[in-house]
Amino acid sequence: MLEAKLSEAALLKRLLDAVKELVSDANFECNEEGIQLQAMDNSHVALVSVKLYASGFKRYRCDRPLPLGVNLGSLTKVLKCAKDDDICTLKAGDDADILSLTYEAKSAYADRIAEYEMKLMDIDADQLGIPDTDYDASVTMPSSEFLRIVRDLSLLGESVRIEVSKEGIRFVSDGEAANGNILIKQNAEASGKKKGSIEMNSAVTLTFSLKYLVNFSKSSSLSKKVQLMMSNDVPLLVSYAFNQGHIRYYLAPKIGD
């Protein structure tokens, strides 16, 4: 059985928000290490991988590996019934056919305990092995800055070319009616304060769909920083780390000409 108690429902709400438009159904793989979700979108262009460490929960118990097949739309609805600061407990039995969620709140006049149950489903999905990759370029920047860049450029065109060079990282969008490019230079003062960093072994140029990057940027509410890892001709890794775990996205580049 699984019993996992989170100190704030907001974490799950934000995670669902950051995943549900890419993937409609997914297995929450629960084991003694924590809860993991890994799924590819229908078009096999993007993969999302979420990890919640057991240590990130107020209480965590999982006796044996348990895949919980979740319809993310249904879970989103059930989580909407929780207040952000409610204590949230997830429970499932070994037969994994029902997920129960309990929301507890203390207020000035009374304690409220709300209980919800949702049906789980059998999802036949291959677990994918993600190879360790030595990336040619690694860029860490404020997640709000990345959100703003991809949102702005998505107004101009469908794609963004990301160029990492000695100059810094440049985001370029060539739209039909307008184009734009944004250069972020390594700033000695800023890097000293650990606001961001650009590390590069060799120059990288890759082109990506902005629609996906805008979608990934929903994770900005989970972490103040985002890390972009790139090598030529391999998927981009967009990683957000938070206290209780991480969310990572892999995105296939656009190819050819």
Binding site: H44, Q127, L128, G129, T207
Partner: peptide, 14 residues
């Protein structure tokens, strides 16, 4: 114009 690539081939089934 560039075509959208796929992830197939980058990850292996466990």
């Amino acid at each position: 114009a560039k075509q959208q690539g796929r992830l197939d081939g980058f990850f292996t089934a466990k």
